[in-house]
């Protein structure tokens, strides 16, 4: 290919990639802008400390949903974080051969698994026998969704820890399990923490699995065995309602959720960037 031709192809590729980037960015900013414009003006401080009111009644808020999302996220983390890290450790440090390959493969599958099916699964094994929707069921469903995200980031972060560091510990007479716990995982903590934040941001935005598990609760509740409200299900209910004031509330809640998720993602990126240096 002549130099001239190569330059033209180069330019063309650059133009195409800039164009596709602009399409992606356009939709992202459209959604952000829409949520911001329609949501921001309905935000007031009482929203954060009140529970929903019937349509037409002034006031009302999403305090219960915020608390619910918080509890669900904690439950999900209690399940997803330790198991995810253990999977990452297993495939790197202990897994050789077939079983490790399958573990990795299933982690990949679980990552792209439709989350609604995870919701149905937890509904069948937990909600039906307990005869009640519950925060616990919601937390477990979100934990299962979070697990492969944590596992993958832990796997990648642990892979980056040089063998020479492990050998330094072995040579001091440190057993393998202590080396993993006190050298490998701390050395990989940057990547693992980034993964945890991305995992949390991800499950905070889940709706479908919650419809089968934690359902919703318009009252204050911190009980693990009772249904519990969440930002996403609240948005779903409000947004699909025929009442204007509820729909406005949905926009305001969406705005808060987007901010939370964005915040977690940005912190994760900054943290990852800082660690890389």
């Amino acid at each position: 290919m002549s130099y001239k031709k190569r330059k033209i192809v180069n330019k063309l590729m650059l133009t195409i990639s800039v164009f596709t980037f602009l399409i992606g960015a356009f939709f992202l900013f459209w959604i952000l802008g829409d949520v911001f414009l329609k949501g921001a003006r309905y935000i007031n401080w009482r929203m954060f400390i009140e529970v929903p009111k019937p349509p037409g009644v002034p006031g009302g808020g999403i305090g219960n949903a915020l608390v619910g999302t918080f509890i669900l996220t904690i439950l999900a983390s209690i399940i997803g974080v330790p198991i995810g890290i253990m999977v990452g450790v297993y495939v790197n440090e202990y897994g050789r051969g077939k079983l490790a390959w399958w573990t990795k493969f299933l982690t990949e599958v679980l990552t792209s698994f439709p989350t609604i099916i995870i919701g149905v699964f937890v509904y069948i094994i937990l909600v039906v026998p307990m005869k009640s929707f519950s925060a616990l069921a919601g937390g477990i469903a979100l934990g299962i969704i979070m697990l492969p995200i944590i596992a993958k980031s832990a796997d990648e972060a642990i892979k980056m820890v040089p063998i020479s560091l492990r050998e330094a510990a072995y040579a001091l007479g440190i057993p393998k399990w202590k080396t993993i716990l006190r050298v490998v995982i701390p050395s990989a903590s940057g990547g693992i923490i980034t993964g945890i934040m991305i995992g949390i941001a991800r499950v905070m935005g889940e709706t479908a699995p919650l419809l089968f598990t934690s359902l919703n609760n318009v009252y204050w509740s911190v009980s693990l065995t009772k249904p519990i409200g969440s930002l996403t299900v609240t948005i779903f209910n409000y947004a699909t309602s025929p009442y204007d004031d509820w729909r406005n509330m949905a926009y305001a809640s969406a705005f808060i959720l987007v901010l939370l998720v964005l915040f977690l993602n940005i912190i994760a990126r900054l943290y990852a960037g800082k660690r890389r240096k």
Binding site: P162, S164, L165, E167, A168, A169, A171, V183, S187
Partner: peptide
């Protein structure tokens, strides 16, 4: 053992 390259624990 002391290795060919320094391998202190950076954390």
């Amino acid at each position: 053992m002391v290795f060919q390259r320094p391998n202190l624990f950076n954390h």
